[in-house]
Amino acid sequence: MVLLVTSDNEQFQTEKDIVERSVLIKNMLEDVGESDQPIPLPNVSSSVLKKVTQPSTGPTEIDVRGRYLSTASTTVESPSRPPILEQSQDETRKRTTDISEWDQKFITVDQEMLFEIILAANYLDIKSLLCRRWLQDGSQHDQGARPPEEIRKLFNIVNDFTPEEEAQIKKENEWAEDR
């Protein structure tokens, strides 16, 4: 167990394998070695820490960007070690599907909390929280894409396209095939 102390001075006893999803905390633990000393997290409040250390975040330690790059790369990095042993794409997809219901619940938070979670994920360096389906439609069973206006609302983004520009982008992107 690891003792974490949040910005509002609350203490959390948390399983080591859960907190080690955070690269920041993992590095800290490696630096200090076996120790009972609490780890201070001055940029994370207790409410946010509760959220980001929920046990069900477990199966999502997948670097989606890494998957992206491997999709089109013609390089197999370690010829002697089958790349499939590192992470099967099928398995990745399966896991991604498995967590969709949990994701749906997870992202049902108010905007302020959403931003705090993302900021904390960035500070703690938890890639799995950044690659969650923030931009997909949790209300749909098949996790379709969230419409642009919903994404704007979710992240408070201003639409700076003219109708003509929007039409041109739609036309350009029409071609791009589904992956």
């Binding site: 931009l135 642009p148 983004i157």
Partner: peptide
């Protein structure tokens, strides 16, 4: 998803 995010801003 990428098509939709392209149209956000």
């Amino acid at each position: 998803t990428l098509r939709q995010t392209c149209l956000v801003s």
